[in-house]
Amino acid sequence: MSSSDIFISETVGTAVLILLGGGVCAAVTLKRSKALNAGWVAITFGWGLAVLAGAYIAAPSGAHLNPAVTLGLAIDGGTEWGDVPVYIGSQMLGAMIGAALVWLAYYGQFKAHLTDPELVAKLDEEGLVDRAAAPKAGPVLGVFSTGPEIRNVVQNLATEIIATTVLVLAILNLGLTKGLAVSGTGTLIVALVVVGLGLSLGGPTGYAINPARDLGPRIVHALLPLPNKGGSDWSYAWIPVVGPLVGAAVAAGIHQAF
């Protein structure tokens, strides 16, 4: 497989992943959205279906869509180390494109939400109207990236490591059942694993389990000209990058040991 094939496949597939995943977060979060307050179950199933769509689209490259998956496969021997930078670079680019498309698709809702008099008044009472430099997550950051409900570095990091270990172990073991992988059933199973992770382990941190999924959209959040959008929470940003990468390495180690 050529580098250009990997680049195109992973960029488009990851863009679709973030468009649909970030899109369900926008749908549930933003005012004037028909899905407002649909809840966590809608978000977890939305992300699972986003993985399904992105993976089918990126099938020619193996549908990694995730630097943690790429790392786990490289450690396990399923991906050439020389291809790793191409995979990760295209995943980051795709994630940023997908996040920008979410903003475009929900442009009116972002504007209505962030200029809502009630929200602006609340921020004004807190003295945080200008939250561009605020360290905490802003009112729409959750549409783009993850954040913890309780800020505890050890717990937050452990949650991301544990969840990503499960994800990458599932992916590595599906490779042992070639009939499932070839038939496409393996892709469906991975999507359902993502739904299960969201329902079971998504509560503490929002289950990034994918460095590109979190960092790419976080950068887009920082760059977009959104009024009252709040800070991009850079003090937390390393956890959904490091945690999934460590989890992928752990999963590859377990898989090789067995």
Rank of each mutant, 00 (worst) to 15 (best):
L226V: 07
G22W: 14
D83T: 02
V28P: 04
L36R: 07
L128P: 00
P67A: 10
G77M: 13
I239V: 11
E126A: 12
I75G: 03
I18C: 02
Y87M: 14
C25A: 07
R151C: 10
A112W: 10
A132N: 14
Y87I: 03
G175P: 05
A163G: 13
E80F: 08
G184D: 02
L101G: 01
V86N: 07
V194E: 00
P217K: 02
N173S: 10
A58W: 01
A112H: 05
V153S: 11
A53Q: 08
A15K: 14
P139A: 00
T185K: 01
L201F: 15
S4A: 02
S3F: 15
F7S: 07
T14A: 15
Q256Y: 06
N156C: 15
A249D: 09
V241D: 01
E149L: 12
A132L: 15
V154N: 12
P227K: 14
L128H: 15
G78A: 11
N210D: 09
A95E: 02
L167A: 09
V69E: 13
A105Q: 11
V24T: 12
A252E: 12
A121S: 13
I209L: 12
A133Q: 13
P225C: 07
D83I: 02
P85Q: 13
A158E: 07
E125G: 06
V24M: 08
T11L: 13
D214T: 05
G72C: 03
A99M: 09
P148I: 05
I171V: 15
E126G: 09
M92Q: 04
L157R: 00
D214P: 06
G184V: 01
H64Y: 13
L245Q: 02
G206M: 01
A191M: 05
E160L: 04
F110I: 11
E125R: 13
R213M: 05
T205I: 10
V102K: 04
L157K: 01
A26V: 15
N228Y: 09
R131G: 15
L93P: 15
L104Q: 14
V246F: 06
K178S: 05
N228L: 05
A158I: 09
Q256T: 12
T187S: 06
D233T: 05
K111V: 10
V166K: 02
D130F: 01
L192T: 01
T185V: 14
G77A: 10
T29D: 04
R218E: 06
A53D: 02
V220A: 02
L128G: 03
E149P: 10
H113D: 01
A121W: 09
V86W: 12
A68I: 03
A133S: 12
P85G: 10
V190H: 05
G21H: 14
G54L: 00
T187D: 00
G179T: 04
A68F: 04
I254D: 08
W234F: 11
G147E: 12
T165M: 11
S9Y: 15
L180C: 07
Y106G: 05
G196Q: 04
L192R: 06
G22A: 12
F7G: 01
A27Y: 08
G78V: 08
T44M: 14
V153M: 13
T187V: 09
F144W: 09
